[in-house]
Simulated assay, not measured.
Amino acid sequence: MRIAIVDYGSGNLRSVSKVVEKVAPLGTTIEVTALPENVMKADRVIFPGQGAMPDCIANLRRTGLEEAVRDAVKNKPFFAVCIGEQMLFTHSEEGDVGGLDIFKGNVVRFPSNQTDLSGARLKVPQMGWNRVSQRIPHRMWNGISDGAWFYFVHSYYVVPEDPSLIAGVTFYGKEVTVAVAKDNVFATQFHPEKSAAAGLALYANFLTWNPD
Rank of each mutant, 00 (worst) to 15 (best):
R2L: 15
R2N: 06
I3Y: 01
I3L: 11
G9H: 03
S10Y: 04
S10T: 14
S10C: 15
S10F: 00
G11Q: 15
G11C: 13
L13M: 05
R14P: 00
V16D: 00
V16H: 00
S17N: 06
K18H: 13
E21C: 00
K22V: 02
A24V: 01
P25T: 00
P25M: 02
G27T: 06
G27D: 02
T28L: 03
T29L: 15
T29F: 13
E31I: 12
T33Q: 12
V39F: 07
M40R: 15
K41W: 01
K41H: 08
A42R: 04
A42F: 09
D43C: 07
D43S: 05
R44W: 05
R44C: 02
I46R: 04
F47P: 00
G49D: 09
A52K: 10
P54H: 10
D55L: 12
C56V: 07
A58M: 01
N59I: 03
N59L: 08
T63V: 07
G64M: 04
L65S: 03
E67Y: 04
E67R: 12
D71M: 10
K74P: 02
F78M: 13
F79Y: 08
V81P: 01
C82L: 10
E85V: 15
F89A: 01
T90A: 11
H91F: 15
H91S: 12
S92T: 07
S92Q: 10
E93N: 03
E94G: 09
G95T: 13
D101Q: 13
I102Q: 07
I102N: 05
K104C: 03
K104H: 14
K104N: 09
G105Q: 14
R109N: 09
F110T: 06
P111R: 14
P111W: 04
S112A: 15
S112M: 13
N113F: 10
N113K: 14
Q114F: 06
Q114N: 04
D116W: 06
S118I: 02
R121M: 15
L122E: 11
G128Y: 11
R131H: 14
R131K: 15
V132E: 03
Q134I: 13
R135I: 03
R135T: 13
I136S: 11
R139D: 02
M140S: 02
W141Y: 03
D146I: 14
W149T: 02
Y151L: 11
F152Q: 03
F152W: 05
V153I: 15
V153Q: 14
V153T: 14
S155D: 10
Y156K: 09
Y157R: 11
V158M: 05
P160T: 13
P163N: 05
L165D: 06
L165N: 09
I166C: 15
A167Y: 00
G168R: 10
V169G: 00
V169E: 15
F171W: 11
G173H: 08
K174W: 10
T177D: 13
T177S: 15
A181P: 05
V185G: 00
F186I: 04
T188Q: 13
T188F: 13
P192F: 04
P192D: 01
E193G: 11
K194V: 02
K194T: 01
S195C: 09
A197P: 10
L200Q: 03
A201H: 00
Y203P: 00
A204M: 08
N205M: 10
L207Y: 02
P211I: 12
